[in-house]
Amino acid sequence: MSIDPNAVQRTAEKVLAEEFLSARSKILDLAAILDRLERAPGSIENAAQMQLLGQCLKILCDDEFDKARRVQLLMSRQYDPDWRKTYGLH
């Protein structure tokens, strides 16, 4: 599906200027959550949720586009095309 030709194209410089403080704030929130986990008693290194968060952070830092969609898919249960057969539904 193509990008809407009528959509306003803000320049990358403008998007960065407008979104920088928002991104800064969200990164700080995430950093503070990780600090909170570090300070808390107990062990979560092997927790599946921590591994998932680690994989998400890698997506944020890689050179590929479509990051929101890729994070969503990483956080999703997989689709089985034969699900109807599994459930006995026709």
Binding site: Q72, M75, S76, R77, Q78, Y79, D80, P81, W83, R84
Partner: peptide, 14 residues
């Protein structure tokens, strides 16, 4: 919702 959305949406479309 959440982790069930992708799988459920595909089942619904199917």
């Amino acid at each position: 919702h959440l982790e069930d959305k992708f799988q459920g949406t595909r089942m619904i479309l199917d």
